[in-house]
Simulated scan of single mutants.
Amino acid sequence: MIVPFAAALPEAEVRVALAAIEEILRSGNLVLGRHTETFEAAVAAMAGTHHAVAVNSGSTALEIIFRSLEVSGRAVLVPTNTNYATAAAAGNAGARVQLYDSGLYPDLDDIAARLTPDVAAVVVVHIGGYLSPDLPELARICAHAGVPLIEDAAHAHGAHQAGTPAGGFGLAAAWSFFATKVITTGGEGGALTTNDPDVAAFARRARNQGKDDNGRHIIAGNSWRMTEIGAAIGSAQLEHLTRDVDARREVIDRYAAELASPGLTFPTVAPQGQVSGHKCVTLLGEGIDRTAFRAAVAEHGVALARGVYEQPLHGQPVFAALNVTDAFPSADDFADRHLCLPLWRSMDNETIEQVITAVEAAIGG
């Protein structure tokens, strides 16, 4: 049975990381050292920004961004189709979370209708590592309204659109380096990227208990630092990010070429756009039962993982206090119909062919 998994690092990256880890352990400098600085420089280059600040998770990166914008008491627009952390980070920073409709991509009309003077920020989420073809228009809408656009780029390492990388469309972006991501820092980890020096300076203080250069606690921060070991593990992978993303894209394109049909459609990617390959998302045709489809694929030796987000935030018990009464048709449709096909680093041809054969059989059935 082929089961989706987070593939191990290639041997060359393991050797590089192990050498760095040994050096770190012998030095005794376990946080905020040269490996963190090297990692931050590589992350900034990935996002095409002047600044990157490494922290302990993508959730923390989002919360720091919101705190830097002083969103407390104001509204932050969050897609209902996203991870819990996107909304929780805004709430933790004191904001009032307001949900908007979104499938794989955001509903720009719904966002525009909700842009009141009380809105402190709009969040766009690059689900599965796919960048909405409408991102430039969304950035224009936010700029016209004078509202910062924040990118939740947790899935989007190496994704770009017409020369602009993920992280280059908004004021700031948050990245996750969790164990399942395209780049991982050894289980947990995150970073924020920005061209705004004030946001970057705030983040560097906030992650280190709010301390300034003299050790005084001048803002309400926390122990949100990334370890030197985590930074070294991430750096070893970032050296090969373009190659890795290209390989993932080849698998996605092959799936689309051989499996696209009325029963299975693949997302539109903007011309000159690149997905990160965190997920290979596809949509079942109307009327196809997803549970039965998964079972049919499994009969041919391939297990399909759960979707990216099969329960939008407006249906999550933890957000019941938001008292959401709006309809979110795009989010509900996407949650009900999407699948993620197996995709990981260094998939071999035999495995890809087995997936295609199993899915073709299920579609035919």
Rank of each mutant, 00 (worst) to 15 (best):
A296C: 08
L99E: 00
Y100P: 04
V53G: 05
G48F: 04
L241D: 01
L32Y: 03
P117F: 13
A95M: 02
P165I: 04
T193W: 14
S330P: 01
S176G: 02
R249S: 14
K181P: 07
N29S: 01
R205F: 12
A156N: 01
N208V: 10
Q237H: 00
A47N: 01
R345H: 14
L104K: 07
F5H: 13
A156E: 02
A113H: 11
H300D: 13
A42C: 04
A139R: 12
G187T: 11
L343E: 07
A75C: 12
P317E: 12
T351E: 13
A295Y: 06
G365M: 13
L284K: 02
L108I: 03
I219D: 04
H300E: 13
T80V: 11
G315H: 14
Q354G: 02
F266G: 03
D101I: 09
P262D: 00
M1L: 09
V275F: 09
E310M: 06
A174I: 04
T227I: 01
H240Q: 11
N56Y: 02
P271Q: 03
L304T: 03
A173Y: 07
G234Y: 14
L259A: 06
D244K: 14
I252Q: 15
Y105V: 06
A89M: 08
S235L: 15
V14S: 08
A7E: 06
S276I: 03
A54W: 14
R15I: 13
A305T: 10
S235M: 12
T116F: 02
A236L: 12
S176V: 05
G73C: 09
P312L: 10
A201C: 10
A335L: 09
E37I: 08
N195L: 00
R337D: 15
E353F: 03
A247H: 08
L304S: 00
A121G: 03
R34E: 15
S261G: 14
G158D: 04
K279A: 12
A159Q: 01
V16H: 03
A87K: 08
Q311V: 10
L322W: 15
A200Q: 04
P106E: 01
L104N: 09
V53H: 06
E13D: 07
E286F: 03
R225G: 01
C340Q: 11
Y100H: 10
D333I: 14
E11R: 08
V71W: 05
G128L: 05
P106K: 05
L69K: 06
D118A: 08
A95E: 00
I21D: 08
D198S: 09
A260C: 07
S235W: 14
A20I: 00
M226N: 07
L343F: 02
D348C: 10
G103K: 00
R225C: 11
H278S: 11
D110W: 14
D253S: 15
R294H: 01
Q209R: 15
A143T: 03
A47W: 00
M1W: 08
I363C: 00
L62K: 00
S346L: 14
P165D: 05
H160R: 11
D336H: 11
P197V: 12
V53L: 06
G58N: 10
R74M: 05
E239Q: 09
A112T: 09
F328D: 00
D333V: 15
L259R: 02
R225K: 08
V324K: 06
T80E: 06
